[in-house]
Nucleic acid binder design. Structure first.
Lengths: 222, 222
DNA sequence: ACAAAAGTGTTAGGAATACACCCATGG
DNA sequence: CCATGGGTGTATTCCTAACACTTTTGT
């Protein structure tokens, strides 16, 4: 059977929390179209490559972020004719959540790569404003009923650090005492390591790793 | 820039509730590969067609279901090499929810089209078992926090009919009295029409239309 | 009158909030 | 000893599940 052939790309909404602010990784385009404009990292899917593999490859190539520390999930696909001025392109967008890692290097096709507070990330190339908004909304809602907030934290973290993630992503303040009770009470959310830290001053805080749970019972509500 | 060209399709997980059973619309393939096997309806995206438009077109062509009554949302994309034995195909899968409409006609590429209880829909062509499972899981979870269950109902419906939708999709029993209070209490979920019906015997039940809400506060939990 | 389904009232138990209070460290 | 943040106890308030009860029809 005959069929039309289309170009397929993966794009990445890579989020982190830096300085108590939800931030997104953008690359400065080194090619036309949109040369010099900021955009989400991404690129073409190769002929024999599965979609998650393409997303992981682009994450490594364009951002230099280490694979193991980054949570990656599919967000949605976008294929409006005209979204790329060169040709018809369907993009499969992935959402990546990372801890606050050192500024990554620019990739092959990018002139520069930097973290931006999501509130300042506007006027992006293509329809990337739209993809970013969808990714932020997904992240916000998934914090409620999944243990995904731990993806923004280093492998070992304190309850207060986890709370700052929620406050940054949701843009709200949370009661530290009730938050502590909730997250330590949700089965499978946090695994105590037994160690403590005093990096924020005051009484030492217990350190946790992410637990085995995939959903939160009960959920944490905004 | 050079790039690989891939075939892109849309596939549809079309669900309804028939005889208190969650059911899926399948088509019998009239072509190779998988000739004679049951599959999800779907087809190639045209060169100048947006993805939602392709989904709506395939829904009309392959199932004959009327557009206005069917809720349509994107589910996910699947592109593993080898998922179509002919060539590399990336599919964008849509979830469609419909009221219990008369058995639709077979489409152009299909030998037959029928509703199957989802529990009996196994051994489908391609990776469609997987897409179906993902669609069912999405429908189950969206009933909790969105007013989507109304998409399974005709334009005017009773609280008991809505409850049967929840019971069929979740596979659980619900207390009719508490359910009534919850759904009529959730702001924007149901709009009373003022009319009543006695189609199930007993005291006449009030008729409702779906309200303007997009999320349920508070959610209905499984 | 009775059966059947719709819809309301009531109550007991459990979760969320607000906040008082205590704990463990550094300076 | 005091400041700082970590963590626990507790009372009040709200929500929910369970279920007794009333309403309105058809036969």
């Amino acid at each position: 059977m005959s069929h039309p052939a289309l170009a397929v790309t993966v794009d990445l909404v890579v989020l982190t929390v830096r300085a108590d602010t939800l931030s997104v990784l953008l690359v400065e385009r080194g090619e036309e179209p949109f040369l010099g404009r900021w955009a989400l990292p991404g690129g073409f899917v190769r002929p024999d490559e599965d979609l998650p593999a393409a997303a992981e490859r682009e994450l490594a190539e364009e951002t230099g972020l280490p694979r193991g520390l980054v949570h990656l999930e599919q967000l949605a696909s976008y294929g409006a004719p005209g979204r790329d001025p060169r040709q018809r392109v369907v993009t499969v967008c992935y959402l990546a959540l990372a801890p606050d890692l050192p500024v990554p290097r620019a990739g092959t096709d990018a002139a520069d790569a930097r973290w931006f507070p999501v509130a300042e990330a506007q006027g992006l190339a293509f329809d990337h404003d739209h993809l970013l908004a969808d990714g932020v909304e997904r992240a916000r809602s998934k914090l409620e009923y999944s243990p995904l907030a731990t993806a923004f934290c280093p492998p070992e973290f304190t309850v207060a650090e986890l709370r700052k993630v929620y406050e940054a992503v949701w843009g709200t303040g949370l009661d530290p005492r009730n938050f502590h009770r909730k997250v330590t009470g949700a089965a499978g959310f946090l695994d105590p390591t037994g160690a403590t830290t005093t990096r924020d001053g005051g009484r030492p805080a217990a350190l946790f790793r992410r637990g085995p749970a995939t959903t939160l019972h009960p959920p944490l509500l905004r």
